[in-house]
Structures are given as C-alpha cells and as structure tokens.
Amino acid sequence: MTRRPVQIEQTAEVADALEFAEMKASPVTADPWAELRQFTDARIALGRCGASLPLAAVLELRLAHAQARDAVHLPLAIDQLAPELQTLGLQTLALHSAARDRAEYLTRPDLGRRLDGDSRAMLKKRQPTNGCDLALVIGDGLSSRAIHENAVAFVREFIGLCAAHTPFALGPVCLVRNCRVATGDEIGELLGARLVVMLIGERPGLSSPNSMGVYLIYAPRIGTSDEARNCISNVRAGGLPVGQGVRKLAYLVEEALRLQTTGVNLKDRMQADYLPFCPKPALPGRD
C-alpha cells in the first residue's frame, strides 16, 4: 500500500506555525515585498531583527559611506594625471587653492574659491599671452575619485573632437588641489580664456562616490555668479557616460561661442541628431 502525502490545509494557523519555525531558524524577519525593489533603488524590504536593521544591511550602508568618505579625502593624484594628459599633447600646470588642507577646504568655501599666492604667481608669469579660446581646469572638488576615474578619458575624447573639427587655441590644463567650481573663474581670468571648462568631483552620494561635474563659463572673471555657469552633472560609469557628456559639452561650447554667454541664457536645446562641431548645413532657400 502506498502512502499518499498528507495534504495540509493552508490555514492562518499553519502559516503562523511555518512563520514561527522560520523565525526560530533566523532572528531576522524577512519582508515579503522584496519584489518591489524592482521599482526603486531605495533600500526597501531590508527585513529586521526585532525592530532593528539586520547586520547585512548595516554593513552595506557602512561600506557605501566609507567609499564616499574616502572619495572626499583622497588626495588628487596630480603626479599621475599630468603625464597622462601630456601624452595627449597638452601642457599641464599643478595649482593649489588658498585652502591649505582638507579640513580648511571643507569649512572655508571662500578660500577654496581662490588660488594660493604661488599658483597665482605661476599663472601671472605666463602673461602676457594672447589668451586662449578654451582653458581646461581639473579640480578635486569633493571627490578625487571622480576625477581619477573619469577626467582623462573625458579630456581625451573632448580634445579629439576639437582637433578634428575646430582650430581652438587651448590653454594649459590646470590641475587644482582643494578646488571649488569658482576657482576656475580666477584661473580663466589670469589665462585670458574666452571659455573655461571645469571638471570637478561632485559631492559623493552613497551610490555615486565617483560622479564628476562639468562646468562651462564664458568670459570667466573673479566674482562670476553661479547663474552664469552651465553644468553637466553625474558623469560616471552608471551615470552619464563620458561620450554623452563630451557631446553635450561640445554643444554647449558651440552655443556659448555663438551667443557669447553661458548660464541661464544658454538653454540646453540639443537635438537628438546633433553632430559636434560640424558645419551646419544651410537651410534650403536660405543661402
């Protein structure tokens, strides 16, 4: 005689008993809505032990925070960046803001926005020159990691585009420690640059310790206000890819030179089929 498996009716009591057995096995109560994670990157359905967060979730957050903290405090590796940029045929200058160390940088944004005396003297020594069309400034900002991971690739692609299509006079690439966005204003003014392109590490988020911002400023001067800048944000693997960021920058550079301004009056109206630095075909009947 074969025994048939006993059919247990799935009553609430049975469910409770099964749940209880599971709880005995692990002190963690799982959340039965893990499938909702497909709709958001928010840290949902983490489960709990008692009322508290399970250790796995605690350590995951701690790791993400550690990576963000390290990104803030990692020194900008100018010694590695400069030779890489030089192999692209670019001149480089190593500069420093007036914020002497990281603690001062974080508490004195006013000092981070200005160059220190040596850096200013170095730039002034280069004068008089005839200025340049475009000066690239690379600053650590709040994440050196963002620069280490994205800046050289970004510059390589961007100057590749420029070299192929436009006769830009490029200034030296300035690599700046303890740099804020506005540091580029003083640099641009001293170099006599028509445009400054600033690559800078953005404030790191837990899921984005390596995100780079790209700022564009026309006719930079000390005291330029934030409304006079255009910004491309979140350039990184997993964010805005370098290629797309470069294409957007090329568009903004072209528009800035055409309109002779940046900021609120330069709206991003880039078309999907935009081709960087290409002569625009004349409209039929307009020539």
């Binding site: 958001t40 840290r43 949902i44 983490l46 709990r48 009322a51 508290s52 967060l53």
Partner: peptide, 25 residues
Amino acid sequence: GVPGADDIMLNYQSTSFHDAAYLRR
C-alpha cells in the same frame, strides 16, 4: 523615515524606518 536612511533623491543620510522603530521600542 527614509528607506535604509539613504535618500536616493536628495543624496544625504537621514533616519530610517528602522531608526523610528528602534526609538519607539
């Protein structure tokens, strides 16, 4: 109360649903 204390829009850490449950407990 922010899921896992990590606000993925404002990019900062606040308190979590678990933190609130901890305090009430």
